[in-house]
Design a protein around this nucleic acid. Structure first.
Lengths: 165, 165
DNA sequence: AAGTCGAACGTTATATTGTTACACTGCACG
DNA sequence: CGTGCAGTGTAACAATATAACGTTCGACTT
């Protein structure tokens, strides 16, 4: 089994080697930043690592709390928000609007119009990019005379793993 | 022309008799609450009226500011949030997650899975309920083994009126 | 008529989330 | 060497939302 790219299917798999997810996300991020000539600084890298500490969406202030003590000084809000802004610009992290929280992108490196799946039971956040959804949204919007720039699609429900409990 | 139900098409129409929108929204709300045996109290009615003061999404604290002086005492956060919670439960108002703001529902009275259209130019928020979108989302989610309970679909872009400027 | 109950609202305080403004540092580049 | 700029540190604050508890008032019971 190759090491890459089942990342997007793992969010709802109860037991998996999550440390591999983190390693893969960090190394993909490093490669992407390298290629783009932007800097994955220690602060940014640490925030990304903490966002990836689980498949659940993470709150900005929880990141701050976890970074207390490990930086020279305590991490203040701007530090964390700036890192998150950078990571979102690079497509490495998504903001989950319905939760005011942040989740690592399992398929960074290409821009996409993802749809998020949020399990209300276990809190895990998965991601899909369904062409039929994209197409239907585009069609419907254009019938309404509306030109779409960005989209927020978040489905709340129960993931497969939680259904079979 | 009947008085009812073009409400959902008016959000992006530059010039229309908006006072008619407000009247219609309020009378529909009164009828719905009557029928359901729930109370559209003065506070709730006033909040709904203010939410409908335009087709743009309204911030909770702006509602409070507008209600200063007109209530016996100043409107405090719980007053406004409770009214908004009630109006959302009754499907009279939607929360726009990507804006932390609230907008009147143009087609209350039936529950639905709406998709919001948010114009980044004029700020107007329209709403559609496209069966193909609903179907595509349902299909894609169920292929992912995910059982959907609620959905947040918000498209940011430019409305027809703003495109033709 | 008096008692009781619950929904709605008022009040105070606080929690949570995010931004502004400005200072400092260190490295890339001339 | 300067000089500029990206990144970070710091302090203050703004914006959004909730918790906890008290008060009012009308419907219903007795």
């Amino acid at each position: 089994m190759p090491m890459d790219s089942r990342l997007e299917e793992l969010a709802f798999e109860a037991a998996h080697d999550h440390s591999a997810c983190v390693r893969e996300a960090l190394s993909a991020a490093a490669a992407i930043c390298e290629e783009r000539g932007v800097r994955l600084t220690p602060v940014r890298r640490r925030v990304l690592e903490l966002v990836w500490s689980s498949h659940q969406a993470v709150k900005a202030y929880d990141l701050m709390a976890q970074m207390q003590g490990e930086m020279a000084q305590a991490a203040k809000p701007p530090t964390v928000y700036r890192a998150l802004d950078f990571l979102m610009e690079q497509g490495l992290v998504h903001r989950v609007d319905s939760l005011n929280a942040y989740v690592g992108c399992p398929t960074p490196g290409r821009t996409h119009r993802e749809q998020l799946l949020i399990c209300t039971e276990c809190g895990a956040v998965g991601e899909m990019e369904d062409p039929a959804v994209a197409h239907a949204l585009g069609e419907a919007a254009s019938r309404a005379g509306f030109s779409v720039q960005r989209q927020t699609v978040e489905l709340q429900g129960i993931c497969g793993a939680c259904q079979s409990v």
